[in-house]
Design a protein around this nucleic acid. Structure first.
Lengths: 245, 245
DNA sequence: TAGTGGTCTAGACCACGTC
DNA sequence: ACGTGGTCTAGACCACTAA
């Protein structure tokens, strides 16, 4: 039994948390990719030399963080944005009347640039590092409701282009399968602003009418920031839903 | 060991979940009030005739839902809105520059009315049931940033008045200590709107400038809705912070 | 020192999915 | 029939708090 690193060190962490870090390592290195089944609990217990209950507690935490998905009788799988259900985890906009609608992503522009100080800071890049900027419109039903401007490191997403985006499924599904970058967590900041001319035209609202602005920093494993985006949400027929617990 | 109600019934629930419901019952009945210590795990295990691990799993879930708070070496306590830390769980508005500010609640008006069909529906009351409406302004630092209109059942909050609100600490702290109603969960809907005259004046912004509207239904134990409120948030120097996981 | 929650183990059995 | 995760038990020991 490995009780190493416990002794009165200030950096003590219980065994199950060390196991968790080992599993995290396999996710970060891409050894176990999104959608894959990870080894069974007893297999991992044997491999790490701990009891099954300890592995279980490690996996429990990761399942609670949406990193893994357990399925009784089948196994434990690396979370993916491709299965339905996980698809809308990051889009909190829902129609006021509750009727679910088909979503359609319309890429508008995609170009390269150099990171300004602000983008560099939020994405943890060198100022001047190459970035890719993507603009797209999101329709729910027939109505345009979100205008997004998305900033990405060109190094992480090398050949991103309008064609690539058009071909793929959901954006995060594409990032996952094409670039091996799995979006896991995000921080959002919401404000109300008056629509500028571009947004107003795209969202088919009057210039100056109130819009919801959502700034999002998205993280992959290990809290590494990999996406920054600003979205203009039209809240005429939709609202941003949030649960406080 | 009580494995009752398991047999192939469609309403099967594991033992630890039945224990959880028993503990929930003690919270709903007010037998264990906010801030109180609940009996120790071994005590409960003996009382319910199950192993300590099973009680532990029940408490684990309730701690994850912020119903209980564990403190190593001391015991497990019913969550309360009075201890700092829990105080800002339901206010997601933070200053743009990150500097924390003193908050000050200023009650404006408080009157009685009869529930309209909409309020009755969201609060699960009979249409026409007596309700109490409270308006208040929230200042962060010296700046007015939130104008709230709050709807409550007069039956649950009998003698609520401007004086009572002025005297108390935080609103949810008051509800807890004076009326024994503990706010546990909330659903929020966010929209961007143009400021009307009243809101604009109170929040010291121009009429028609964009405001964030936050509609909230707040629940006590057992998902019982007990509060409905609409808040107008000024997002000039603040933003609504949200984490997606 | 005594009591609490926190961790870890080992083993039994159940529920589910697949072959 | 077999392997997976899900539940439950019993007991040991650790870490923290308070008297």
């Amino acid at each position: 039994m490995n009780r190493a690193s416990s002794l009165h060190a200030p950096t003590f962490s219980p065994l199950y948390r060390q196991i968790k870090q080992l599993i995290m390592g396999n996710l970060e290195s891409g050894e176990w990719g999104p959608g894959d089944a990870i080894p069974s609990e007893s297999e991992l217990a044997g491999r790490f030399g701990v009891s099954q209950g300890t592995v279980r507690k490690a996996i429990d935490e990761m399942a609670a963080e949406n990193l893994l998905v357990r399925q009784q009788g089948k196994g434990t799988f690396v979370a993916t944005h491709k299965d339905p259900g996980s698809a809308f985890r990051f889009l909190r906009l829902v129609p006021n009347d509750g009727v679910p609608q088909v979503s359609q992503s319309i890429p508008l522009e995609c170009w390269r640039a150099k990171a300004g100080p602000d983008v560099a800071r939020t994405l943890a890049l060198e100022p001047g590092a190459p970035i890719t900027i993507l603009r797209r419109l999101l329709k729910l039903g027939d109505e345009p409701v979100v205008f997004d401007e998305i900033y990405l490191s060109s190094e992480l997403f090398p050949d991103l282009s309008l064609e690539v985006v058009r071909a793929g499924d959901s954006l995060y599904g594409l990032f996952e399968s094409r670039y091996g970058v799995c979006m896991v967590r995000a921080d959002e900041r919401l404000r109300a602003v008056a629509a500028d001319r571009v947004s107003a035209e795209l969202l088919q609202v009057a210039e100056g009418s109130p819009l919801l602005v959502v700034e999002r920093v998205t993280f992959t494993y290990g809290r590494k920031p990999v996406e920054w985006r600003r979205g203009f949400y039209s809240t005429r027929n939709h609202h941003y839903r949030n649960e406080l617990g």
